[in-house]
């Protein structure tokens, strides 16, 4: 019998959960610590991912290819980068949500440099996180980090685009679930 990678991941997950459950019962410290780490992330993802994917689905049916192409595609000008960064700053959930959104944008005609700017900026300039950072490490830290990184992000994204185009790279279409 062949086991698909999907099923295998679910099996890993089942084993891990069993391990955590046993650890809690036996008060096995490392297992309990891992369980707590897991809970920390899982809580956020369980809350954020479902609405995020509904929005991605709606984007898929409503967003017009021409509009995305015009603002984020081949004909986009420098303002496209500003839009990408603003979209990133307001994306809830950081890169976990940014990856599928970027993929959706790409398949609607956005160019590599725009989606790369978007993903990278989504991990760097999320508004709630930056506010927390400024409160703990000081506004100077946050200001330097963001002001130094944004130009680099744009330059880096243009570089990545050149590289990927030279490789004639195609981003995979996310396949349908196999029944």
């Amino acid at each position: 019998m062949k086991i698909s990678p999907r099923t295998r991941n679910y099996i890993y997950f089942g084993l891990f959960m069993a391990f955590i459950a046993v650890s809690f019962l036996l008060k096995y410290e490392p297992g309990v610590a891992m369980g707590n780490n897991f809970y920390l992330f899982a809580k956020d993802m369980v809350l954020i991912l479902p609405p995020a994917f509904i929005l991605i689905g709606l984007f898929d049916v409503w967003a017009k290819r021409e509009v995305i192409e015009k603002h984020f595609g081949e004909t986009a000008d420098a303002r496209g980068f500003v839009w990408s960064i603003l979209l990133a700053a307001t994306t809830v959930g950081g890169t976990f949500v940014a990856f599928p959104v970027a993929n959706a944008l790409y398949h609607k005609g956005a160019r590599y440099s725009m989606i790369m700017t978007y993903i990278t900026a989504a991990s760097l300039v999320m508004i709630p996180m930056s506010i927390m950072e400024a409160a703990i490490l000081g506004p100077k830290f946050t200001a330097v980090r963001i002001l130094v990184s944004l130009p680099l992000v744009v330059i880096g994204s243009i570089f990545i685009e050149k590289l990927l185009l030279r490789m004639k790279y195609r981003i995979p279409e996310v396949q349908e679930v196999q029944k």
């Binding site: 990678p5 999907r6 991941n9 679910y10 890993y12 997950f13 891990f16 780490n37 897991f38 992330f41 899982a42 993802m45 991912l49 479902p50 994917f53 509904i54 929005l55 991605i56 689905g57 709606l58 984007f59 898929d60 049916v61 409503w62 976990f96 599928p100 996310v174 396949q175 349908e176 679930v177």
Partner: peptide
Amino acid sequence: GIRIGVKKFRKILPNYLKLLILI
């Protein structure tokens, strides 16, 4: 649209679970 979203979510869910375990 919602159906597309749900489908995409179901497709990627095992990878997210793997990610959580690794983290």
